[in-house]
Amino acid sequence: MFGFMSTVIQARNLQKHFGRVHALDGLDLDVQPGEIHGFLGPNGAGKSTTIRILLGLARPTGGEATVFGQNSRTDAVSIHCRLAYVPGDVSLWPNLTGGEAIDLLSRLRGIRSRDEYDRRKRHLLDVFELDPSKKGRTYSKGNRQKVALVAAFAVPAELYLLDEPTSGLDPLMEAVFRRELSERVADGGTVLLSSHILSEVEQLCSRVSIIRAGRRVEEGSLAELRRLTRTEVSFSAANLTEADLAGIPAARDVRIDSGRVAFTVDSATLLEALPVLAALRVEGLTITPPSLEELFLRHYGLDRNDAQPPTAAVAAEPAHARHARSGR
């Protein structure tokens, strides 16, 4: 089976330099068929630059990227026949209506069945509550984003490249987006979802790549990544002594705060602590699995205590990208 379904996206040692700024510094990325792959990183980590290289809009300074096994730059047109792209900051043509923009982009990608397209488009306009007869210049940011999402979902694609696609959407629309995306994946689509909204990634993604300053620092399924991190345990501090707490195996960062004891434990060794807790007959026990946020902070948050300035990652954002955003 996997002989046929080879890796959808493969990037090896991607480099992208803007003058002295290294936006990408040896990035690897692997996306398998049928997965929603979370592409995580703070602003300026190189997410958009990677996606622009995958689209063939930008040339890597070094390294290679393939999509469907084809070179992202030289075979761009044949790759684009099979993918849909939603940018994070959608600009529309000011004098075209949203409906015209959706039709244009869908026709560019190639509508195979008119009826099928009309049906899907009507459904999407309906669920996203988008008025297609307004001119592009009058849409709010969220509505511009909806136009791009409807255009992306109206024609089926094998790969969806989504660059922070929900920025500007309200929580109800985020839920609509998640539902529609899941349907596309059920139809056999693969997704690369760049985001810094961790709850979204947690709900949607089967695998994630965490990047930082132009490099992948972590990759795996959420379950695998969780195993690498610590689980938070807390319970009522009533009737417990310091000695009781000291006897809990593998507990770290033990603290007592407003009447509750809290500590962390390696996810792998959590079971060893449970018999001791049972013997102490602790009350109000809660066990919280590590959130993606903690995974994330493991790679970014730790830095905040380091000598390295916390803005290091932001500084790696190419100057031109920042200007482009603020200049609009």
Binding site: L96, L104, R107, L108, P132, S133, K135, R137, T138
Partner: peptide, 18 residues
């Protein structure tokens, strides 16, 4: 702002039309 067509004319189907 004027409103406009909800669907594109047939001529707006490629980058030349755009």
């Amino acid at each position: 702002a004027g409103r406009g067509r909800a669907t594109a004319r047939a001529t707006l189907s490629g980058s030349l039309g755009l």
